[in-house]
Structure formats: C-alpha cells, structure tokens
Amino acid sequence: MQVTVTVNDTEYTREVEPRLLLIHFLRDELGLTGSHWGCDTSNCGACVVWLDGTPVKSCTVLAVMADGRAVRTVEGLERGGQLDPVQQGFMECHGLQCGFCTPGMMMTARWLLDRNPDPTEAEIREAISGQICRCTGYENIVRSVRWAAGHSAPEATEATEVTA
C-alpha cells in the first residue's frame, strides 16, 4: 500500500508492504541509515526516532502506522548546518565509543531536554533506561546530555558567546 511520511520535514511517498517495519522503511526505502537496527525486540533502543514528536522504538512500529505522520530521525537533529547541542555534547564528552546506540540515545536526550531543560543525572538515567550501550559508556552519555543541558539551541548559544 502507498504511504506518505514526512521525515525530517521532507515528504516521502512509497509503496510498502504492511508488514514492513518503520526502521527498515527509514533505512532501506529512504536511505536514512542514521537510525540503527539493533535487537529487533524493542529492548535496545538503537532504533529510537520521533513519531509525531514522541520517541518510539521504530523496530516495533509498522511503516504503515506512520502514514500521514511526521518522523524525526537523528539526521534531523542538525539545523541549518549547526549541530544540535546534544550532538555537540556527545563530541565534547566522548559520549560514544562504537556509536551504535548513539542515534537512539541522542533522540531520547533531545526529547528529554525539550521537556526538562535541566535534568538531574537520575532523570537522564531514567530517560535512557530503555536503551542499551554495549560499550557500557553510560557515564559519558550522561555527561554528554548534561553538557547539552548547559548549552541551549544554536541561536541562543551564539547570543551567549557574543555577550560573554
């Protein structure tokens, strides 16, 4: 059946089988390979994307369920050539080793910070509790999110630098 999904502000129309998972739609149909296909059992969270503004595990959502909806993936974090502070934080604080869990971690982190701009370490750990880093790099992931909390969206960051 035909589906039209808006991914990172771009509308895509494709013919898909109803059993196709959203993660495979993004990776194989649209070539957006930033989101990772991990455990395939909604445990690891490498596949987390936003569906209508809410993080979901895209290995457990059918592409047809996203028809007419908006999806945001890790490719959509960067805005106007500026890295999202979450991406910057993962760079600054060594928030990734192999990088496999990173896209999911960053999508959840961005969502957390949008709702709670100054989360405690415990709140960050709770937010990513459905996501697994097999390098066990959680300490630095939490630090990266804390870093991002101290650095707001790109426009605001520039303004701060000017006045500082």
Binding site: G45, V48, P55, K57, V61, E126, A127, G130
Partner: peptide, 9 residues
C-alpha cells in the same frame, strides 16, 4: 512497566 520510550506508545 517496560521503559519510558515503550511507555510512550
């Protein structure tokens, strides 16, 4: 129950 991301959906 499950985890925060699963609970969203």
């Amino acid at each position: 129950i499950a985890d925060p991301v699963v609970r969203n959906w």
